[in-house]
Design a protein around this nucleic acid. Sequence first.
DNA 1: CCCGGATGAGTCAACGTTGTCACTCAGTTG
DNA 2: CAACTGAGTGACAACGTTGACTCATCCGGG
Lengths: 345, 345
Amino acid sequence: MVIRPGASDPPTLRQVAELAGVSIKTASRALRQEGYVAPATAERVRTAARSIGYRVNAIASELRRGSVSTLVGLITGDLANPFYSRLARGVERELHPAGLQLVTGSSEEDPGAEAALVDALLQRRVRALLIVSAADDHSALSDDLARGVPLVFLDRPPVGLLADSVLIDNAAGAAAAVRHLIAAGHRRIGIVSDLSRLASQQDRLDGVAAAMAAAGIGDWQRWCRQDAHDIAAARLAVNDLLDADPAPTALLCLNNRITAGALTALQGRNGSATGAQATALIGFDDFELSELLGVTVVGYDAEDMGRAAARLALERMDDPQRAVRKVVIPTRLIRRGSGERAPAP
Amino acid sequence: MVIRPGASDPPTLRQVAELAGVSIKTASRALRQEGYVAPATAERVRTAARSIGYRVNAIASELRRGSVSTLVGLITGDLANPFYSRLARGVERELHPAGLQLVTGSSEEDPGAEAALVDALLQRRVRALLIVSAADDHSALSDDLARGVPLVFLDRPPVGLLADSVLIDNAAGAAAAVRHLIAAGHRRIGIVSDLSRLASQQDRLDGVAAAMAAAGIGDWQRWCRQDAHDIAAARLAVNDLLDADPAPTALLCLNNRITAGALTALQGRNGSATGAQATALIGFDDFELSELLGVTVVGYDAEDMGRAAARLALERMDDPQRAVRKVVIPTRLIRRGSGERAPAP
DNA sequence: CCCGGATGAGTCAACGTTGTCACTCAGTTG
DNA sequence: CAACTGAGTGACAACGTTGACTCATCCGGG
């Protein structure tokens, strides 16, 4: 036995009851305001509880009530990415009024780590699981889904599984951006995307392809660079594109990190990321200070995505049998200058 | 009784044991790799567990083992603020190898909401509680602290309580910024700060006062604006300052939101936030794209703060009796141009 | 050949709470 | 005045897991 001075066990209901001179059950009733307790007794119990700093043991309480916790799990790729943190805020704000709490975990985009997290959260009997998945197959979760654990896929659709999801209208947003650039006179448009295995990136590329095809541009893939997963890789990819001959006159960056990398690359070349002579630029995902930088983006409300996902989860808790739903978050082209530049003559 | 088709209870150890034809305890031993189980038996148990999708019930397990969860609580003001989300990432990265999980909650800077969150997390028997507190008194937590719950205060020090903390070297950072501006020739320096009740803001103002005094500048408070809690308020405050007569020739913004507001205000006035003729500017807190914008800042490593806090918590779990520690995160003046501009003639 | 230790397995209680049932005692009703 | 009602209270079991025991068997050494 290890002696840990200063570390004593928290008070239990039994101690409160003894102090108040009642049975455990009466103490429980008094604290939970169940009724059928004489006002004087209830007051004695409350005083006793306060005096020893009693707090119900949620672990015991949950076990007794059938192992249903008040926790909801959220798995993302990286807590510090503004997109994910806005998602998280939306989720949290929607859960809070329902008395639920958020447990977060980062997969760092690693399917193995993600599976381990899912497992840990389900062991903890979370009430629902919201997940921005890095995995390319989710059939392993079908048992849990069948068992009634609300499962909501965010940003990337479930594969091999029928579950609720909240997705961005990726293809439409990317297509609109391409059309916007083409309308400004561009024909050579550099496309930079993140990991090609991510469905969201694929969808954006599909949108690009559709818009290019509609405009009769066949060789766009010459100026397409994929798998730029961090800012540094994006910068390299953009520099590579701009060194091509002929170089693209416009850039479309398929997520916020890539846009940041592109801005850095452009600044390195022109001395200014936003100079009037610079290459036209549209970024997918809005970002802080994008307005200040005059960057045209394909925006959407990330916090609202989180809220929508949380709502889907809450609704499924109420009715496990309802039809599977897919919420599509619309995108909006926000013109700020960088996407409206005509190609250099 | 409510019928909820499709929602069945998750499998228990007892079911695994029955299926494998062993006792519950043997099943437990096999799954937990405790030893003293014949290889063939262990394999039968594992197969049974897999076939029915068994997952230990962490709630029951934790109760049995003394109500110690593997959760660590983190309370911040706003999940989506990049400062907090970096903190969270640091915490999470340090906790993960220790097998602990992060539960997050936002107080929205409201002491009442914060108290409710603390209560909920302690009811859940979190292993430790990390908190960026909006409250101005923490003596209510002394019971829990005495009971051995590791409590770590982040960014803002504990009041009325002796507990571990991780603080930024606010006064030194702010003083360095002021000295830097003075060295560039400025005498009228506008200061904009967030809620004055926050200790971190007070400390930064103390640093400002010290540096001003050392330079013999006595009337600096003329150009000091407080309680600018969001970007819009900061923009207003900065505009107000720049309309003063005489106007300040430099600005020091005491957090990241204020800097964003100031940049917006400057852009509104000059057409460009970074134009060479603009007012000099230094921001406290580094931010994404600050390099791109050429903004001089007082920076520090927020992720490292989170890691340090998590480490303090882990160490206190090992030794509840160790002396209270305060980790001070150093700041660094990062010169990017905006803080090096001389006053307009 | 018997004893001691290692191995494999099972029984039982307990963690702290809450749902169910049962009991007591006033007060009311017929 | 017996039967009934309901407020107030308590005893007990159970949630699912695991630690502390116990028990049987087998094997090697003295």
